[in-house]
C-alpha cells in the first residue's frame, strides 16, 4: 500500500501558483460590502464550520464564490485528538468541499475534542512521539476522506510541557514529510509563541523546510500584563504589528512567495482596514518577487 505521503502528493507551491496572492478572512458583517464593492483580492478564506447547514451564511457564500477563489480553514477537526476524528464533522466538511471547491483546506496542529466534549478552542499538545503519531494518523485519515492533501497550521500556545521531546518546527516538518500534508505557517502565532515561551522566531522559521509551506497567515495580537511580565494573546482583533510584518518578510525570503491571509475575527473593523493590511502584505510579497528577479538577473 502506498504511504500517506504518496497517496496525496503535495502540490508544488511555485511562484506561479494560481492564488499566489493575498486574501482576507470572509466574515458575516462584510458579506454585503464584498458583493457590492468586489474588492481586488486574490482570494477569501472561510471557516467551513460556519457553513454547516443552510440559511443566510451559505446563501452569501454561494454568491461570493462566483467572484472569488476561496480556501477552507477548519477550526474543528481536532487533528491532535487522541480519540480520533469525528466522522460527522469530516462528512460535513466534505459536503461543503464538493459544493464550493476550495483551492485550499487547512486546520491546526492542536486538539479540541476528548471522548466526552468538544471544547471551542485550539488547545496545545505536548510535542512527543505519541503526539506525532496521533497527528500523522488523523491527518492521513482526513486526507484519505477528502481525497486531497491538507495544510496544517502551527497554533498559538500559552503553555508548554515538560514532556516535550522536540521543537514544534521539527514536529511540523516530520508531519509534512510523512503524511504529504502541507504547512500553513502563521507568522503571528510564531511571534506570539516566541515571546510567550522565550525562543527566537527567526530561528523557528529558518528550521521550517520551505518546500512544505503552502500558505502564510498574518494577524494582530493583544497583550495581557501579569505583574511585570506580558503574555501575548492571539486575538485576531488588531492590526498586524510591525515586528510581525518584519517576520513575514523574513519568512518570504526563506520560503518564497505563497498565498498569504489577513485574519481578523474579533472587533471586526470596516472592510477598508483589512484591505489596507492586504495591500501592505502585497507590497512585501511584491518586493520579495522583485528581489528574487534581480538576484536571478
Amino acid at each position: 500500500m502506498p504511504s500517506a505521503a504518496d497517496r496525496h502528493p503535495r502540490p508544488v507551491y511555485s511562484a506561479d501558483y494560481l492564488p499566489n496572492l493575498v486574501g482576507i478572512g470572509l466574515r458575516g458583517p462584510h458579506y454585503r460590502d464584498i458583493l457590492e464593492q468586489k474588492p481586488d483580492l486574490g482570494w477569501l478564506e472561510v471557516h467551513p464550520e460556519n457553513y454547516f447547514g443552510g440559511g443566510i451564511h451559505r446563501h452569501f457564500l454561494s454568491q461570493i464564490r462566483a467572484d472569488y477563489e476561496i480556501s477552507f480553514h477548519a477550526v474543528g477537526m481536532s487533528l491532535g485528538s487522541a480519540h480520533g476524528l469525528d466522522p460527522d464533522h469530516l462528512h460535513k466538511i466534505k459536503e461543503l468541499i464538493d459544493i464550493f471547491e476550495p483551492f485550499q483546506l487547512s486546520d491546526h496542529a492542536s486538539w479540541s475534542a476528548t471522548g466526552n466534549a468538544h471544547l471551542n478552542d485550539l488547545l496545545p499538545l505536548p510535542y512527543t512521539q505519541e503526539t506525532l503519531e496521533t497527528l500523522q494518523q488523523n491527518i492521513s485519515i482526513a486526507q484519505d476522506y477528502f481525497a486531497r492533501p491538507i495544510l496544517v497550521e502551527n497554533p498559538s500556545t500559552y503553555v508548554s510541557f515538560h514532556a516535550d521531546e522536540m521543537p514544534e518546527y521539527e514536529l511540523l516538518n516530520r508531519l509534512a514529510e510523512t503524511t504529504g500534508c502541507g504547512l500553513l505557517l502563521d507568522c503571528n502565532n510564531i511571534f506570539v509563541q516566541a515571546h510567550n515561551h522565550g525562543f527566537d522566531p527567526y530561528h523557528y522559521i529558518s528550521q521550517i523546510k520551505p518546500q512544505y509551506v503552502g500558505e502564510i497567515h498574518l494577524a494582530g495580537y493583544s497583550e495581557r500584563v501579569i505583574g511585570t511580565e506580558t503574555l501575548l494573546i492571539d486575538t485576531h482583533s488588531k492590526r498586524i504589528k510591525p515586528e510581525v510584518w518584519e517576520l513575514y518578510g523574513h519568512a518570504l525570503r526563506h520560503i518564497g512567495t505563497v498565498p498569504t491571509l489577513i485574519e481578523w475575527d474579533l472587533d471586526l473593523p470596516p472592510l477598508s482596514v483589512l484591505m489596507e493590511e492586504a495591500k501592505t502584505a502585497s507590497e512585501i510579497m511584491q518586493h520579495r518577487t522583485n528581489t528574487l528577479t534581480e538576484d536571478r538577473l
Binding site: 471544547l119 471551542n120 500559552y158 510541557f161 515538560h162 495581557r224 501579569i226
Partner: peptide
C-alpha cells in the same frame, strides 16, 4: 505540574484557555 513554570504563573497561562472557552462560548 505538567506545564513548564516561569515568571508567569501556570494558572495565568491556563486562564487564557479558560477565558477563550468559558467567556468566549
Amino acid at each position: 505540574d505538567l506545564c513548564i513554570a516561569d515568571n508567569i504563573p501556570v494558572s495565568e497561562r491556563l486562564r487564557v484557555y479558560q477565558d477563550n472557552i468559558l467567556h468566549g462560548l
